[in-house]
Structure formats: C-alpha cells, structure tokens
Amino acid sequence: MVPAFFAPIFQNGKGGAPVGVYIIRRILNNNAFVSTDEQGKEIVVMGKGIAFQHTSGDRVPQQRAEQVFRLSEENSGRFQELAARIPMSYAVLSEKIIHQAEKRLKGPLNESIYITITDHIYSAAQRYRDGLVIRNTMLWEIQRYYPDEYAAGLEAAATVRETLDLPFAEDEAAFLALHFVNAELGVEINQIYEVTELIQSVCDIVRRHFSMEFDPTSMAYYRFITHVKFFAQRLMLGSYYEEDDSELLDAIRAKHPDAYACTREITDLIEQKRGYRLGSEEELYLTVHIARVTKH
C-alpha cells in the first residue's frame, strides 16, 4: 500500500497502469528521477536502473516504474536529496515500516516520517556495518512514556533485522519510536526531548506528592501518560486551552483536593520553566487524570 503522502499514479507498475511515459526533469541516480504529474506537481519515479543511460528530457515508459511518489511542496527537496544518495531498497523498507506503524498506532503519521525514518535507518545501517553501536540514553523513558510508539519501534526494528540482517535491538527501537512520536505530535526531534523531560517532571511531582509508584500496566496510567504527553506537546507549540471552566474546576477541586494540590505544584513548575500559568481547563483535566491514576 502506497501512503497518501506518496500518492501513486499507479502502484508498482502493475495492474491497470495507464499507458504513457514519464518525462525526466532531473536524474537523482540510476534508480530514480524527478518528473511531473498531470497537474504539473513534482513526482519521484523509482525503479531498478530506470534512469541508467538517460538524460533530462528523455521519456521513460510508465511500465518501468516500480514506485511513484508524489511529494508535498514542503518536503519535496528533502526527499529528492535523500533519494539521490540512498539505495531504493531503503525507501521500500521504510514504506513497509511506516505502514506497519500507522496500523499499530491507528492513524496516519505526518509526512515528514518518510524522510526522517528512511534517513535514520540508512544512517544506522551504515553505523552498524562500521561496528558503531549507539546506546539510547532515554530508553527507559521512551519505554515508559511512549509505550505504543515503542511497540511500533520494536516491530520496525524486527523488520529491519529480517530485511537487512542487522542487529537492530531495543536501543534502535527506541530511536525509531521517537520518530513516530515526532510524526504524531508534529514537533521537531529536539522538542521531543523537551516534551519527554516535561513528562518526567510531571510524573516525579505526582510520585512525590502521593508517595507512590505508577502501575505502567494499568489503564489509568495509560490515560494519564497520554494526556500528559499531549499536554506537553501543546506547551511546546504554544497551543493552550483558553476556555474558562472555573465553576467545574471548583467542583473537581472539592471532590479531589489532594489531586488538585498536586496539580497546583505542576502549575507552579510550568510557570517557572515555561513562563506560562495554566488556565482552569488545563488544571481541570490534569486534576481528573491525577485523581484517576492515584486512586487505590
């Protein structure tokens, strides 16, 4: 299945492919070139040896194409640069991995994933072949705070192992998970580290306040972490809940005074670190999730 971001003119050059040709606009390597579609949008056409001994302006039968990628304008240049320097097999592998991840995560990922995950897998493969293995210092946090994405990372690492015969393991699965998080949240990788640090700080406050440890297998914990993750994302993007739910917050505060006191500690931390004071709606949702996750 070719993803919507890489909307196909036809799939894999088989079955109902229209009769016609692609006009080469720019050659990327022997296996890829840039052309345009019927709307004049740039596409990247891939196939084994498809551009060999060709030049710009040449016509190539559509039947020779194995994959046809239609890129958004924002990412066109970056993908073309990537396609020019890596073997086509990595684009095929990445497409499979992304499709697996979207199925597991139950939703589409930001189009940037097709660039970042392909580049990461190719670079990591080069490192492994050179005997350079990088440990992921955030492995524990990623396993704990992004369980779904980490599960997708483990599946992706297994696919890489089977395809490339490389020992992709837990550390690499965690790196891949961060790319999935990035594509879900729509923030840059460096911001993902900030998001993770903020999640860690919030969890530390809750643990200290209630003198407890979380049960990472519980549904309450899963809901709590999911809320905190997107709460942290909104802070990074400067997107906040603006509605005033002070009356409902008063009711929740009366019902869960200890959870609300914990929320106020988090509010003070956010104001100190981010210069933003949480509104009543943000405090309301945090209090509800804290009350649930700390319920014995």
Rank of each mutant, 00 (worst) to 15 (best):
E141W: 11
F224W: 01
R253V: 10
N182F: 00
E73P: 07
A101H: 06
V92Q: 13
D204Q: 14
C203D: 09
M46H: 05
T294E: 05
Y145Q: 08
E213T: 03
I27Q: 08
N110C: 09
A232D: 01
L139I: 08
K295A: 13
R135T: 13
G153N: 01
R70P: 00
I9S: 11
I50C: 06
I86H: 01
R223S: 14
L178C: 15
D250M: 11
D268Y: 08
G238N: 05
R70F: 00
V187C: 10
V21S: 01
F230N: 08
E170D: 15
E111W: 05
L82K: 05
K96C: 11
R59L: 14
T226M: 11
I142P: 00
L237H: 01
N136T: 08
N190G: 13
I113K: 09
I113H: 08
D215H: 02
V160W: 07
F214N: 07
A169R: 13
H54S: 11
E197H: 09
I252E: 06
E271W: 10
F52A: 11
V195D: 00
Y285W: 10
R85W: 03
Q80G: 06
Y150C: 12
N12I: 12
I86N: 01
T55N: 09
S246R: 09
A83C: 13
E265N: 02
I97Y: 03
L185S: 06
F33M: 00
Y145C: 08
L185Q: 09
D215K: 00
N30W: 09
L71Q: 07
P167C: 08
K103L: 12
P216F: 13
Y90V: 00
T196W: 00
R208N: 09
I115W: 13
G16P: 03
V160R: 02
K255I: 04
E170S: 15
P18W: 03
A173I: 02
V187A: 05
A232P: 00
K48W: 03
R208E: 10
G49K: 04
L93T: 05
D58P: 00
R207W: 01
D165Y: 09
V288G: 03
Q272R: 07
